[in-house]
Design a protein around this nucleic acid. Structure first.
Lengths: 243, 243
DNA sequence: TATGGTTGTCTAGACTAATAGACAAATAGG
DNA sequence: CCTATTTGTCTATTAGTCTAGACAACCATA
């Protein structure tokens, strides 16, 4: 617990905040009272002001709430479980966990396929692809920010259709893809970029889960290559490996 | 190129180092030459000395090598792809990507099952379980730190057997589980705890991919519940959703 | 209402991080 | 052998982080 490292480029208050978030909070229920600042300062071996900076950061993230004279308390914030399997769909995957789900088009453009995209979609190198930037939300909380690429020859109008429907599944259906399945998913984790910070309304230093996925139609043809960045403090990925 | 965030408790030189490691190096092969410090400073929008601090950190990590008068070069160390599917195994999953794989027992103890463990293993609430803390490495680089729980009534001696073999698969085989498959896997991402920082030799602020998994035997009985924490800068998870 | 416990605010000083500029030292190429 | 390029070292200044102490503001409760 008290293993903080100095002179490593990460401020002590941020290390304390990270440890409180992941080590202290899981042991306490929602609404529980945090130990007083002086006690935390002693257990972490830092000054009380350093603990205060950590708590202020966690307060801005919305997971703590300090009340003068009473103490500091844990806000309830459970993570959504986002299922990933052969039939991965944003909306239906969260339908039991959120009242409303929505997708918003941030931007779209048609570009020559970058090499990894061309290879994922099995297109020639200079092929034209539609690039969609979207943000998906559940109960009006932004969950993920995604960039998706589609073969422009086959799905040239998908941006307009997505803007109307707010759903990839619905947009593909209207463009003739009755069904599609997940071919592969890779997962990484990194610090959120400044763009994702604003799209997902995160605080600096926040983590995103990044998935890179290929979806194929019933004939096995790739229809979509996408990179999704999930706010790691709002979502966990539930991987379904059932046959 | 991503923008840098100021006043977030993470020093600019560390952010630059993280971005060079994650974004710049994958685009360059082993032995490639990095752009000169002045050019990097300009693209990142920081002072040359800040870039130098970042390069010095990456040099200490062993992934860069600066030579006066010539330039700075990549020592290559690409991310491993760790496959997750119905038959997830540490060693065989990485056999094509690393010369040597090994598992080391950090500690073990027998405890009453915490509620989530009992529920995952389908055991009564007060059942006794063996808790194993292990670190797995590939080519002598620590890849993941794991905590695994086993029914003590069935696998009471697994700690000793694991310590000998360095492999969960081998240990289970010797205890009568000829085969097992992955029932479920959940993936989260978080900042590394101080314990994982030291076990995985990471720098503070580093990210880990956390998987929580249940493995079952041929009869469908849970044999193991485990939490693995992968160093996110060394591994990506490759999810196999094939039938 | 008096008291002890807790968070909020302020000041001050030591240390770390970031910027800026100048020049030395080593290398590669003409 | 020059010259341009690149990394290495040094000094100085400004901004941010951490520590230390003191006290105010607020709350619960005896």
């Amino acid at each position: 617990m008290e293993t903080l490292e100095r002179r490593t480029g990460v401020a002590l208050w941020r290390q304390v905040a990270d440890q409180i978030r992941q080590a202290v909070l899981p042991g306490l229920g929602a609404g529980a009272k945090l130990p007083p600042e002086t006690a935390l300062a002693e257990t972490f071996g830092v000054n009380r002001h350093t603990v205060r900076a950590a708590i202020a950061a966690l307060e801005k993230e919305g997971i703590l709430r300090a009340e003068q004279g009473r103490g500091t308390f844990v806000n309830d914030r459970k993570r959504l479980r986002y299922p990933i399997g052969r039939r991965t769909r944003f909306s239906s995957g969260l339908e039991n966990q959120a009242q409303t789900r929505s997708g918003k088009l941030v931007s779209s453009r048609t570009v020559p396929a970058p090499p990894p995209v061309a290879s994922a979609l099995a297109l020639p190198d200079a092929a034209s692809v539609v690039e969609l930037a979207t943000v998906s939300s559940a109960d009006s909380v932004a969950i993920s920010s995604a960039t998706s690429w589609f073969d422009a020859a086959r799905f040239g109008t998908i941006a307009e259709v997505y803007a109307e429907t707010g759903s990839i599944t619905a947009a593909l259906a209207r463009l003739g893809v009755a069904d599609y399945t997940r071919k592969s998913t890779a997962v990484e984790a990194r610090h959120a970029s400044s763009e994702d910070l604003s799209l997902l309304a995160l605080s600096p230093g926040a983590i995103v889960l990044l998935t890179r996925a290929i979806d194929i139609d019933a004939d096995g043809r790739p229809v979509l290559y996408g990179e999704s960045r999930f706010a790691a403090d709002r979502v966990e990925l539930m991987i379904d490996t059932a046959p």
